[in-house]
Design a protein around this nucleic acid. Sequence first.
DNA 1: TTACAACTTGGAGCCAACTCCAAGTCAATA
DNA 2: TATTGACTTGGAGTTGGCTCCAAGTTGTAA
Lengths: 134, 134
Amino acid sequence: MKQRTYTIKQFAALTGVSEDTLRYYEKIGLLPFAMRKNNGHRYYSAEDEERVMVLLCLKKAGMSLEEISPFMKLPMDEDIQNIPVIRDMLLDYKRKVEGQMRELQKILDVITAKLHSGEKLALRRSESNTEAKS
Amino acid sequence: MKQRTYTIKQFAALTGVSEDTLRYYEKIGLLPFAMRKNNGHRYYSAEDEERVMVLLCLKKAGMSLEEISPFMKLPMDEDIQNIPVIRDMLLDYKRKVEGQMRELQKILDVITAKLHSGEKLALRRSESNTEAKS
DNA sequence: TTACAACTTGGAGCCAACTCCAAGTCAATA
DNA sequence: TATTGACTTGGAGTTGGCTCCAAGTTGTAA
């Protein structure tokens, strides 16, 4: 059965990524060179959609395009268990997200404490936790 | 008792924000105009330090300088309970951070599932959750 | 008194990530 | 056949957030 395809306009609406940005991502090599019709127009497949979904997911977690790039080079339809490198990349990424969540949790704890205890806005040294040398 | 003050160099080391960046933040009005000695050199106080700590905290949670700006306009040493506007801003901010954490948690769930069940890298529609129109 | 270090300012440059635009091609339609 | 609309490309412009630099001032130390 033949897979459904999308024009760039449809694909932009589908994914929420603008046409300009799709072309830009292709130009910088983040997304693979899209398939073209005879007239040179791009068209996109379900696998392209899956790839963009992964892109958006990684982006939402705060990764730069540079960091996302290696994920975009992977086949979207392989069993993860068969490709150790994907497993490792995912584990790596998982650790990153967990780290970011720990940061956010720390911040939430501080805010919550301040809201409940009649305190000042200022942070005590121990609440700030930057990497500055003391 | 007289409060201790810092030169810009000391203050940069203390907070982990570079001298250039401190001057830049002042120039764009993110930080208030720093006090000057007779010779025109900036110096910083404990309250300045508190303000920068708050800045770094908000930044770490992914806020833009634009979003951080209103917080920098507030006095650092007032009791939060006395100023409803601060309470409201903090509550607002708390909701933002919680939202971001929910996003990250969703992403973690997807990754974890994929790592355990011999799946493909591709995301199912329900796992991606962008705001694109269907 | 001269040299040096620590600052000052204004402005230029830089990188990431878009966003916009002009000029051109192509297919379908009036 | 002329027009319209959806696309193409290359390249310029924009925004956010710094980062760097040159030229000038001031206070201390040799």
